[in-house]
Amino acid sequence: MAFTEVIPYLYYADADAALDWLERVLGFGPSTRWRLGGPSTREADIRVGDARVSISGRAPAGAGGEGAVGEGAGALIIVHVDDVQAFYERVRSVEPGAAPDAPVTQPYGPTMFTVVDPWGYRWNFWQGEADPPQPNAS
């Protein structure tokens, strides 16, 4: 058996607003939206390069109640880009506050910066690969 794909499935209470933001600010898309008989999107897919992310148009379980978490709490999505500096400049030109910190080369290899969307999802944009840890020399 071979694995062929992993598709993140993210919950946004307002999927239409989230999809519009992801397309406008991060340049993702196109998106395919299913309204399922209602006025707003209930399910969607959005393209991110050759990959896709599925979007739910409802708040995650537990949202709004006791012990509730934000939509993006605990989620970190890593997106590889071929020119992290150019992508950072693009995001800053569209929405200046979306990426407050410039790309930084990490001690473990990649150069990256983070965008936190208005719903709390953290999108890390990476250029390069993480270096595996080296065993300690004895």
Rank of each mutant, 00 (worst) to 15 (best):
M1P: 06
M1N: 11
A2H: 03
F3E: 02
E5R: 13
E5Y: 05
V6E: 00
I7G: 00
L10I: 14
Y11G: 05
Y11V: 00
D14N: 14
D14L: 01
A15V: 13
A15K: 07
A17I: 10
A18Y: 06
L19Y: 06
W21E: 13
L22A: 07
F28W: 08
F28A: 00
G29W: 01
P30K: 00
R33M: 02
L36Q: 05
G38N: 04
G38F: 06
S40P: 00
T41W: 11
T41F: 00
T41K: 05
E43R: 14
A44I: 10
D45C: 04
I46A: 05
I46L: 02
I46G: 04
R47F: 03
R47T: 03
G49P: 05
G49S: 10
G49V: 07
G49N: 02
D50K: 09
D50E: 13
V53I: 15
V53S: 10
I55V: 15
I55T: 11
G57T: 06
G57A: 07
G57K: 02
A59Q: 02
A59C: 00
P60T: 11
G62A: 08
G62L: 02
G62C: 01
A63C: 01
A63W: 12
A63S: 12
G65V: 04
G65E: 00
G65F: 03
E66A: 13
G67R: 05
A68D: 07
V69E: 08
V69P: 04
V69N: 03
G70R: 10
G70N: 12
G70D: 12
G70K: 09
G70V: 10
G72T: 06
A73R: 11
A75R: 11
L76G: 05
L76S: 06
I77N: 04
I77K: 00
V79I: 03
H80V: 00
V81E: 03
D82H: 13
D82F: 08
D83H: 05
D83N: 15
V84P: 02
Q85V: 12
Q85N: 13
A86W: 01
F87M: 07
F87H: 13
F87T: 15
E89Y: 02
E89G: 10
R90E: 14
V91Q: 08
V91A: 13
S93Y: 10
S93F: 09
E95F: 07
P96K: 01
P96C: 05
G97Q: 15
A99C: 05
P100Q: 14
D101A: 13
A102L: 05
A102E: 09
A102G: 01
P103W: 03
P103F: 08
P103E: 07
T105R: 11
T105F: 07
Q106Y: 08
Q106P: 01
Q106N: 02
Q106D: 08
P107A: 13
Y108F: 15
G109Y: 03
M112D: 14
M112R: 04
F113H: 08
T114M: 08
V115C: 09
V116K: 11
P118K: 02
W119P: 04
Y121F: 15
R122S: 09
R122T: 14
W126E: 07
W126M: 02
E129R: 00
D131V: 15
P135Q: 10
S138R: 15
S138M: 10
